[in-house]
């Protein structure tokens, strides 16, 4: 396929990227290109210019920071999937990154590109909300701000990023002892995007679940919490029966508009989300213990 014409600018710093954005109305930021380029090739968008963030060193890399892990926006899924720092502190993020696309896609696709695209079927948004990530954003005037992941994803393909803003990093907390998190995915057989993605983060103390966060994606336009499931888990002993009973409440929490298509209707997704939640919870419980 052949994309329509556009200009190309390569930024060497975030500040330069912002200048280029301001100078090129209708321009789009190019990260790894794995969300944007297919859209352009199918001629579903026609930006005036692309501003390539790929050479901005300050946007790359995974490092320990502020009791958690800072992931530069231009860090690839492959780097995230294999990061020892993340594996130690917040392994669920690596676990989800390892399930994105395929080997070659993960080598070039980036966390920043993925979350800024905010595809409801993406894997990382669900997990980032579940662990309480924070998004670092550079504003047009050189100011920076942070937004909680839960507030960042505002709708299908819609985020809190304003005009001229650039996502620079994602910070995730270290889960800490006694906390385990896991991601379970039902992948579409063609696209490999999540039909249902379920993330669970559990804190266990003396064999009982002290705190549970259950977030699902794919089934909803933005990552969505399942409070009844979390409530049922909290205080439980996380036995197989307890997990099954709690996961059974997932459908009840999914009351709004749900995603649906010819492969998996919203009704189906609503009813089987619980099965994937149960898997995520079981895996998270095992890690928490």
């Amino acid at each position: 396929m052949y994309a329509p014409s556009f200009d190309y600018h390569r930024a060497s710093s975030v500040a330069e990227a912002q200048k280029l954005l301001a100078a090129n109305p209708g321009a789009k930021l190019l990260a790894g290109g794995h969300s944007l380029l297919p859209v352009l090739k199918l001629r579903l968008a026609a930006p005036s210019a692309l501003i390539d963030l790929g050479r901005i060193a300050e946007l790359k890399g995974v490092s320990a920071a502020n009791g958690g892990v800072r992931i530069g926006a231009m860090t690839t899924h492959a780097e995230i999937a294999t990061s020892p720092v993340l594996a130690k502190s917040c392994g669920i993020v690596a676990e989800a990154a390892a399930q994105i696309g395929d080997m070659a896609v993960r080598n070039r696709g980036t966390i920043g590109g993925s979350v800024a695209h905010a595809d409801p079927a993406a894997d990382l948004p669900t997990v980032l909300v579940a662990v309480g990530a924070t998004m670092e954003i550079a504003g047009a005037g050189g100011a920076t701000r942070t937004v909680a992941a839960a507030d960042f994803f505002q709708g299908m393909m819609t985020t809190a990023l304003g005009d001229g803003e650039i996502l620079t990093a994602v910070w995730v907390p270290a889960l800490g002892a006694g906390t385990g998190a896991a991601y379970a995915k039902f992948a579409h057989p063609a696209s490999r995007y999540a039909v249902i993605g379920a993330a669970a983060s559990l804190t266990v103390k003396n064999g009982a679940c002290e705190r549970a966060i259950i977030i699902v994606g794919g089934v909803t336009a933005t990552p969505t919490a399942l409070p009844s499931v979390a409530a049922a888990l909290t205080g439980s002993n996380l036995s197989a029966e307890a997990i099954a009973a709690a996961a059974g409440k997932a459908a009840g929490d999914l009351t709004g508009d749900l995603m649906g298509d010819v492969f998996a209707s919203s009704e189906y997704r609503r009813h089987v989300t619980g099965a994937y939640v149960a898997r995520a919870v079981a895996a998270a419980a095992a890690r928490a213990r």
Binding site: P189, A190, S191, V262
Partner: peptide, 16 residues
């Protein structure tokens, strides 16, 4: 045609 690309039309892959 709703299944108009390989994003929608699933042919068998190695891992299934």
């Amino acid at each position: 045609l709703v299944t108009g690309t390989l994003m929608d039309y699933a042919i068998p892959r190695a891992d299934v």
